[in-house]
Design a protein around this nucleic acid. Structure first.
Lengths: 205, 205
DNA sequence: AGTTGCCGGTGATATTGATCACAATCCAAT
DNA sequence: ATTGGATTGTGATCAATATCACCGGCAACT
């Protein structure tokens, strides 16, 4: 697996350090990669697949914040890692995925020695922060119909596919809404010719 | 002004660099310190007062995300600064405030040379990220009554005061709600003996 | 073929919050 | 003292969403 191509700016020395110490792990679609409250022992670099990052409600329910794709990393685990605390988020594999787990003990050292790593961390922070701001926009200012459209469009962008194999219930869970609401809104979108609905599958047009 | 005491970990050299290049600015209560879309030319270190950080809705309305107090800094301006872009947020002085403006040109250099600065940036990122996560919690999972209680408690924590000079309209704006809703919820809180209401002033009990 | 468990559709109702309309009160400026 | 603006209270209504109840369809397993 030529993972270096996903992180083209890493210096050879850094690449070597990571190769010596990191472990590659495979996850199946639906696997939980990290749980809320879990102690963080490595920073995850995504090599293949898609990871969904959720915020969980203590009294049940979850809320999808953003995706991580190949070449991206979990900002939360970098931040927490450096300060050795536990996870504030939950990460779930959306499809079969490959992830490189870098032990947190290396973080400080990598940060100090490798400019490319420091820049990668900064860039990761910035991207995730921006995405969080856009999440705030959506739930603070938008109604469910707009949020649903955003959700579907984002998914299409992330996967590059126009079909989406998912049940209405799962969408409702991701958006912290209810199945009936999502079904009705999807039906309206179908009437506006934005989607075609099938069993367990939505087709964007 | 002994600003160094607010940032006790900064090395003497770093302190000197900042003193040579930064400009201290005063803002009056209500002043806008940074607007959405504005080009960022300095990173703000808060010396005195309280700054409110908002997300703005293009079609009108704003949403309070968090506060910055003495010893804190604007994460967004650090992130944007390094990548030379424009502001995604709006910052408003809640009370008369003093702010140290550090030119963004120095960021890269400070980051590379001074471990204390690098640690400060990391810590700032982490704190703001956590606060954003808690913002997401509130709007995704909580009703307005709980959000209002959180809002009042947080304000009491930040200022250390049990009285809060503010109109219902301003609270509604901060929470992106409407005045009537806030008035009614406050009245309910008064009946539960959580607050006492006065004109332009709320007293926590 | 029958059972069982998701999946989606639909009507009815409840709740939350937004909006509108209007009154009462307080305060500051003239 | 009077006016005008901001502040607060309150009822009525509306819109968005959640919840409940129920049904029919589809697919997998036996």
């Amino acid at each position: 697996m030529e993972w270096k191509k996903l992180f083209p700016n890493f210096e050879p020395e850094l690449v070597e350090l990571i190769e010596k110490n990191a472990v590659q792990r495979s996850f199946n679609a639906g696997d939980i990669i990290m749980r809320t409250g879990q102690y963080i022992k490595s920073t995850a670099l995504v090599l293949e697949g898609q990871i969904k990052i959720y915020r969980e409600n203590p009294d049940g329910g979850e809320f999808l914040m953003y995706y991580l794709g190949p070449g991206q990393a979990c900002a939360v685990s970098m931040i927490c890692a450096i300060q050795s605390t536990t996870s504030e988020i939950m990460a779930k594999a959306e499809v079969d995925s490959e992830v490189l787990m870098v032990p947190v003990q290396l973080m400080d050292d990598m940060m100090n020695k490798y400019k490319s790593w420091y820049q990668f961390v900064i860039q990761t922070y910035r991207s995730r922060f921006d995405e969080l701001l856009s999440v705030v926009d959506n739930i603070a200012f938008r109604n469910m119909d707009e949020r649903l459209e955003f959700y579907l469009k984002r998914h299409a962008e992330k996967t590059g596919k126009k079909t989406f194999e998912i049940s209405h219930q799962e969408i409702a869970d991701d958006l912290h809404s209810s199945r009936e609401v999502i079904s009705r809104l999807l039906k309206k979108m179908e009437q506006r010719n934005l989607v075609k609905l099938h069993r367990n599958m939505i087709e964007l047009v």
